[in-house]
Design a protein around this nucleic acid. Structure first.
Lengths: 128, 128
DNA sequence: CCCTATGTTCAACGTTTATTGAACTATTGA
DNA sequence: TCAATAGTTCAATAAACGTTGAACATAGGG
C-alpha cells in the first residue's frame, strides 16, 4: 500500500518533456483556460496565486484535479509553502518550447473573455 | 426518422461561431493535428486534399469522424465534388478570430514533426 | 445498368474525462 | 494541545471520446 502523502513536492515534467497535444488539450478545458488566464494576469505583478484564489471557478477537489493536469502537462509550476501551494505559469519553458503559442492563446482568450467566463463572478468588483 | 443522406453540403460554423476551447481541443488530437498539418503544407500550393490522401493516418470511418470534428469546430472547410470531398484550412477565419494561433501551433508541431508522427509512414518517399 | 470507388452514418465497445462529496494529510495559530 | 484552515486523495458516477466494422449513400465508368 502506497501511503497517501501530500507533503512531497509535486512532480513536474522537464522542459523537453512538454508535449504539444497535452498542452493544447489542457488549455481546451474552460476551467483550466481560466486558471491559466488568471495566472498570466498575475505575471505582470510577478507574484503567484494559490488554490484558494480560484475558488470562484469550481470546488476545491475539482480544482485540485485541474491543477494536477496543468502541472503534469507542463503549463504551471507548484511551490509548496506551509499549507499553501503557490502556482505560476511556466512561461519561459513554454515560450522556448512553443514560441508564440501561449501569447496567441492568451490574447485570443482575452478577446472572448466574457464569452469564456474567464473571470469568476465573485471576482468582479462590486460598487457600494 | 431523419433519412441519412451524404449529398447535402456539410455544415460549417460562421466565423463568429468559432470557439477557442473547441479549436484547441480539436488540435489536441494527434490524428487531427496531423490532418491540419498536412492541409497547411498543401496551402502553399493553394490546392486541396481529399479524404483518401490521409489514409496513412487511420481507417476511413475513423477519418470521417475526425473530419466532422474539424469541420464542426471551424478548422476546415469541405467542398463536395462528385464522389470526392475536397478540404482546406479555414485560414482567413482562424487568423481573424485568433491571430497568430494557427501559425504558432503549426510551427510548434513542425519542430516536433517526428515525435508527433505528423507524416504518415506511407507518405515517406522510397528510393529505388 | 451494374460494378466499383469514395466517403459517410450507425451501433457497439472500451477508455478517458470532469465532477461530486467524504475522508484524509499537513500546517498554523490560539 | 486542539481546532481551524488549506489543499489533496479516493471512490463513484455520468458523459464524452476514439476506434472498429458493417451497412449505407452517391457518382462515375465500363
Amino acid at each position: 500500500m502506497i501511503p497517501r502523502v501530500m507533503s512531497r513536492a509535486p512532480l513536474h515534467p522537464t522542459r523537453e518533456q512538454i508535449e504539444l497535444p497535452m498542452v493544447l488539450d489542457c488549455l481546451s478545458d474552460p476551467i483550466r483556460l481560466a486558471i491559466v488566464y488568471q495566472l498570466a494576469q498575475q505575471e505582470r505583478v510577478s507574484s503567484e496565486l494559490c488554490c484558494g484564489d480560484f475558488s470562484g471557478l469550481s470546488g476545491k477537489s475539482n480544482l485540485a484535479y485541474h491543477f494536477a493536469k496543468l502541472r503534469e502537462c507542463g503549463l504551471m509550476l507548484t511551490r509548496v509553502a506551509g499549507t499553501n501551494r503557490f502556482m505560476r505559469l511556466r512561461r519561459e519553458d513554454l515560450d522556448a518550447r512553443f514560441p508564440g503559442l501561449l501569447d496567441a492563446v492568451l490574447s485570443s482568450a482575452a478577446k472572448d473573455a466574457d464569452r469564456l467566463q474567464l473571470i469568476a463572478e465573485c471576482d468582479v468588483t462590486v460598487a457600494g
